[in-house]
Design a protein around this nucleic acid. Sequence first.
DNA 1: TAGTATCT
DNA 2: TAGC
Length: 205
Amino acid sequence: MLEFLSGIRHLPGYLDRARQEALVEVIRTIVAEAPLYVPVMPGTGKPMSVRMTNCGPLGWVTDKERGYRYQPTHPATGRRWPDLPQELLDIWNDVAGYDKPPEACLINFYSDEARMGLHQDKDERDLQAPVVSISLGNSCLFRVGGLSRNDRTLSVKLSSGDLVVLGGEGRLCFHGVDRIHPATSTLLKNGGRINLTLRRVNPPS
DNA sequence: TAGTATCT
DNA sequence: TAGC
């Protein structure tokens, strides 16, 4: 049950095994073109535990000097991000309930030790569009709160193929990943978890 | 527009 | 800096 803030939807088992495998293949080709890198915190330069890349016209990046932002190019290669694959556009069209296509897909790779502290996705200018999150590989313990950091939180297990849609009132809720559950999926041969988040950055023109 | 942030 |  993930409805204590309206606009947060958990769709368990949304993607069947074949669609999960197809997505992993697509992600492999994206990562070959736009390699995973270790993002660091603004100001401190502390590395995050996830590795990250993007596809789509824009990608979310962070570094010590310039902080959180969206940009059209990979910070290491300087090349444009790979295109958003049709598989992801199809998912967006099915669940987002939003006219305009996503502009960014952040690809986060979690090793079995990686975590993600509670945070809000609020670097987008368009807060009307939802954020659509796709889980692949090992399951995780996901935690969702409210609009304020100290609000009560709820923990939910997310499994491979699950979707979470953060929209409406839930668009700016705090959320994070407390734990990856090792060896809970056979999708990724080397373990870990991939999370894809589809975001609309700019308001419709 | 300056300060802040997915860190611990 | 609670919750894992």
